[in-house]
Simulated scan of single mutants.
Amino acid sequence: MSGMPISPYLHSLREVVGHRLLLLPGVTAVVLDDAGRLLLGQRSDNGTWALIAGSMDPGEQPAETVVREVYEETAVHVVPERITSVLTQPPNTYPNGDRTEFVDITFRCRAVGGEARVNDDESLAVGWFAPDDLPPLNELNTRRIAWALAPDADAWFSGTAPRRP
């Protein structure tokens, strides 16, 4: 998975399965601060701005993963508040030929400490953005933000009519 670090667990799987498609559990964080701003990272692999996300490690609960990933990438401490979506992302092929398909759980999270900064090699930049002044984001990230900002919305999952805020 060129451009992004690979966990020891995933590395051990790749030694066995090579580049074949792996279905992987992952999480995404829609992080809000007290001013209602969103935390985003500029990805080092493709330069685009995105929500903070990552893969689960064996033995980890999804909420633990989201807390760990946000801190590892941005140095911000968060508390997960609710699940906003559960979905399978489209398959992705990395430059080295590795193929993945993530089953993603997105959490709305509240920032409770830390100062946003680049905290690992997965981001070129991190920052807080007002919801009406976001950098360009892909459609899935835009939908995740809308679902997270909708007051008292149920979590979206396939098979239901998405509740559009």
Rank of each mutant, 00 (worst) to 15 (best):
G3Y: 12
N92G: 00
D121L: 12
R108T: 11
A146S: 13
V79H: 08
S158R: 13
T84N: 08
E73A: 13
E72L: 14
L21G: 06
M56V: 12
P58Q: 05
V76D: 02
T160N: 11
G159R: 05
L10Y: 08
E81V: 14
E81Y: 06
H77I: 09
A50D: 13
P80V: 00
L137T: 08
Q42G: 06
D45W: 12
V17G: 08
N46P: 04
P5F: 11
S123A: 14
L137C: 10
N46Q: 07
L39Q: 03
A35Y: 06
V17D: 02
S12D: 12
P8S: 10
R144K: 13
F157P: 01
A130Q: 09
I105T: 15
G47C: 07
S85W: 05
R117K: 13
A125E: 14
T48V: 08
R20A: 12
S44T: 11
E72Y: 10
H11A: 15
R37S: 03
E139A: 15
L21A: 02
L21C: 04
R82M: 11
R14W: 03
R143H: 14
F102P: 01
R164C: 00
V66I: 13
E64F: 08
D154W: 00
G159Q: 04
G159M: 04
Y71S: 04
L21N: 05
P131T: 11
W147Q: 15
L10N: 09
G113Y: 06
T106D: 02
A150M: 01
R43A: 14
L87P: 00
C109M: 03
G114T: 07
S123K: 09
G36C: 01
L40S: 04
A35D: 15
Y9E: 13
R37P: 03
V70W: 00
F102N: 04
G97K: 03
A29Q: 07
P95L: 11
T88A: 12
V16S: 03
E115C: 04
T160F: 07
L51Y: 00
V112D: 03
S12G: 08
P165H: 04
A35C: 03
P151M: 03
R68F: 11
L13N: 00
V16E: 09
R117S: 11
T142C: 03
S44R: 12
V118Y: 07
P5T: 09
V79N: 03
L23M: 09
Q89I: 00
R14G: 01
A75N: 15
P25M: 04
P8W: 06
V16N: 03
P151F: 03
T106Y: 02
P131Y: 10
D154M: 06
V30G: 01
R82P: 14
L134E: 05
A75D: 14
L40Q: 02
S7T: 15
P135Y: 00
L32S: 02
V126Y: 00
E115S: 10
